[in-house]
């Protein structure tokens, strides 16, 4: 694993320890994709966080917010010390699910938490961009389990009908839905809904970068979907093996152990 991906994971662990909250399995499964988007793909920087033509990142699977903060820290939106000092306080703007009302200067694009909201919101932005001829692209990160929500499919129909080819849906497919219902073949489903679909190893940042570049360059009127095959807790042996880390924050001892595991991964 690349050093930066280890460092980001350790930041997540520290922040989770600090606020004693977090869904670390979900954070670790999508972190590599989130980093790739911000580092290699998106037309975005902290300085142009309110530029109307920026690319948008919408975190629809809000439980992975602790994957976003470390990335935004590296990209200079705020400092690690600032987040670490305030996260977990009741009046902190660094909520465990992003809260855009606390970022009037931009950088956080949506209120996460209630599943099935981010995708329609992203589709609305992409639709407006189309109307306004903006070059802006919209990337929305969803969970595989989130596709149980009806609004996800409503927005897929609409995105396809509106030919929103600057929209990229990313499914963090860490097989969490397997425990609920059988969703069948998501690739075929999304293809049938009119999306260009790619399936990648969500922990291979080179493959992710190449896929995002290729798929977004295809202006064929079809919205894009990237199904990132991921592993819950990827980057820590303990976390991949024990689902208690779906929603658990490490104590001091666990923090040390998990950081060590990340280093050795």
């Amino acid at each position: 694993m690349k050093q930066i991906l280890k460092d980001l994971r350790k930041d997540s662990l520290l922040l989770s320890h600090k606020c004693q909250d977090g869904n670390l399995q979900s954070v670790f499964s999508c972190l590599d994709v989130v980093w790739t988007l911000y580092d290699k793909i998106m037309n975005w920087s902290a300085e142009k966080a309110t530029d109307p033509d920026r690319d948008f990142f919408i975190i629809s699977k809000g439980q992975a917010t602790l994957a976003l903060y470390p990335v935004l820290i590296r990209k200079g939106l705020f400092s690690f010390d600032e987040v670490a000092e305030h996260i977990g306080q009741f009046d902190s703007r660094y909520c465990i699910q992003t809260d855009l009302s606390k970022f009037p200067e931009g950088g956080v694009e949506n209120n996460a938490g209630s599943l099935g909201h981010g995708m329609p919101f992203a589709v609305g932005i992409a639709n407006a961009n189309k109307i306004k001829n903006s070059p802006s692209r919209v990337f929305v990160l969803c969970g595989d389990g989130e596709f149980c929500e009806g609004t996800m499919w409503e927005s897929c129909i609409f995105a396809s009908a509106k030919k929103l080819d600057d929209l990229c849906l990313i499914i963090d497919d860490n097989n969490s839905v397997g425990a609920m219902v059988d969703m069948g073949d998501m690739q075929k489903k999304l293809d049938a809904f009119g999306f260009d679909v790619a399936v990648i190893n969500g922990h291979d940042t080179d493959e992710a970068e190449e896929t995002f570049r290729t798929i977004m360059d295809n202006h064929n009127g079809r919205p894009k979907a990237v199904i990132a095959k991921t592993v819950r807790g990827y980057g820590s042996k303990t976390m991949t093996e024990h689902d208690i880390w779906f929603h658990k924050a490490p104590n001091a001892e666990e923090l040390e152990l998990l950081c060590k595991e990340v280093d050795e991964f």
């Binding site: 694009e109 329609p120 919101f121 609305g124 407006a128 306004k132 609004t151 409503e154 927005s155 609409f158």
Partner: peptide
């Protein structure tokens, strides 16, 4: 350009409206 029919999907319509607002509509 000013009128959008989402089809019979009210919940998505509200989310789409939120996104449209974000871009100044």
């Amino acid at each position: 350009d000013n009128v959008i029919n989402t089809g019979i999907q009210e919940a998505n319509m509200i989310g789409v409206a939120a996104g449209l607002y974000l871009t100044g509509m």
